[in-house]
Nucleic acid binder design. Sequence first.
DNA 1: TCGTATCGATTACGACTGTAGTCAATAGTC
DNA 2: GACTATTGACTACAGTCGTAATCGATACGA
Lengths: 122, 122
Amino acid sequence: MADRISDAEHAVMEVLWDDSPLTAQDVAERVDPARGWSAATVKTLLGRLLAKEAVRHEVDGRRYLYSPAVQREDYVDGESRRLIDRLFGGRLTPLVAHLAERDALTEQDITEIEALLRELKQ
Amino acid sequence: MADRISDAEHAVMEVLWDDSPLTAQDVAERVDPARGWSAATVKTLLGRLLAKEAVRHEVDGRRYLYSPAVQREDYVDGESRRLIDRLFGGRLTPLVAHLAERDALTEQDITEIEALLRELKQ
DNA sequence: TCGTATCGATTACGACTGTAGTCAATAGTC
DNA sequence: GACTATTGACTACAGTCGTAATCGATACGA
């Protein structure tokens, strides 16, 4: 059930999170063109996602309408925690510190995050 | 050269980042015991990391002394950006917001990050 | 000097991935 | 009713990964 979603599969999930239910063809049309996938590839990925129970399908005549069975929020949460656990001892502060050191934070980022945290405190 | 470091390989890199140079046996002894790896497995991983040029070796008699060829900082940076690009449109604020919503931030986290950001601003 | 322990290299092998072609069924068209 | 386009299912196939056994060379101890 909770098999890991691969990178290519994730690209398909993004399409379905954006809008669903969709037919396989719809998905193929909307998936990131940079991937350059054939329709067959998208169908394979949808099949694998079904097997992993990451998407579900309802039957519509001779075809399927696909919808996510996993919430984006949950996926994002899992992936984020994985990274933070694996590389930063499970704590967010070192990640922020790392990005700061790497000059990966703009003035705007800093201001936004400060505002966010300020809100959290009340 | 810059092939991606797999999950199992990463566990080996952590050992070498912590201390190096080390023999294969040293690495095998220090690698996370939770993995339950045989010495042979560690040797395979070291071989693959050599091929990927993520570690280098100097010859010491009949054996190798392994050292990282990739800095932990760089690896961490790559992985962090990957995640943030893939899931948060390349911006840190949504990640922090996500974790906040998920109650994944403690009082202490918030205070720490605020302090960190305050420093950055001067 | 002879055996033995040790080391890196090579080989193994099933699972998963990325990418896609083929096939059998069928819905819809003429 | 026959033909065709479409759809999901199945098959393919090379590359990577996790996990490990085996092999040939060699340093070292007896």
